[in-house]
């Protein structure tokens, strides 16, 4: 079963700053795309702030006497220019933070998609430093109404829908939805919606396809 409270768990851990870069990337994009998720995150951050403010006086750790002066000295010294903020193109579906993880300086149109089967394309992303080595990030693109073969998950799979949507027997998901699957017995065969589906996936183990031939195929393609 898809357990939706796992998404809240991830939001809470993002708010607390506990997530690895790969997980943080998915949550940050989810929050940027989904106003409800942003409100939830703000609420968890408010919870963090409340905990800091409620810290009893005797628990507060005094800072050294010259701490404030050091801060002011740094403020007064000329600061290095801040990196330019790259705003997202109006028609772009892939957030800039994700584009950075693609090999080379490719744009959304020049991505070299790897065809896994008819109507299913994927591209692997660079995994940011500091993430567990088993984490794999990839973009997956499904043609309209394309169904993927039925598969189960050997590990955890976190999927963020960037564009379009997909549905399976548990429901339908659309741009901005984050889906956390952490159930080895859960089998599904997602089908893309009428606009196709572009999603960002984080997995820590291969997907297990139900049909051996596809499994082999997928194994060599490292799906």
């Amino acid at each position: 079963m898809i357990d939706h409270s796992l998404v809240e768990m991830m939001l809470m851990h993002y708010a607390a700053g506990h997530l690895r870069p790969t997980e943080a990337l998915l949550v940050a994009c989810h929050v940027a795309l989904n106003p409800l998720a942003r409100r939830k995150l703000e609420a968890f951050e408010a919870m963090g702030a409340k905990m800091i403010c409620e810290c009893p006086e005797e628990d507060a750790a005094p800072v050294s006497k010259d701490c404030f002066e050091k801060v002011m000295a740094r403020i007064e010294s000329p600061a290095p220019p801040a990196p330019a903020h790259t705003p997202m193109q109006q028609d772009a579906a892939i957030p800039p933070a994700v584009m950075k993880l693609l090999c080379g300086n490719c744009t959304e149109r020049s991505i070299r998609w790897q065809k896994l089967q008819s109507g299913v394309e994927a591209v692997s992303l660079h995994v940011p430093a500091g993430s567990p080595c088993r984490h794999r990030l990839r973009l997956l693109r499904l043609s309209p109404h394309q169904q993927t073969p039925a598969h189960s998950h050997a590990g955890r799979e976190v999927t963020l829908v960037l564009q379009g949507g997909f549905s399976d027997h548990t429901g339908s998901y659309r741009a901005g939805d984050l889906i956390v699957i952490d159930d080895k017995t859960f089998v599904h065969a997602p089908r893309a919606g009428a606009d196709g589906c572009l999603c960002l996936m984080l997995t820590d183990a291969p997907l297990l396809f139900r049909r051996v031939r596809i499994w082999f195929f997928g194994f060599f393609k490292r799906v």
Partner: peptide
């Protein structure tokens, strides 16, 4: 020594996509 992936809060494209796509009263 690695930047935390921050939420891109001023993203008109994403805002737009999200609001037109999600007419939920929830949000």
């Amino acid at each position: 020594r690695e930047k935390y992936v921050e939420v891109d809060s001023d993203n008109p494209a994403l805002e737009h996509a999200a609001t037109t796509d999600a007419p939920d009263d929830a949000y």
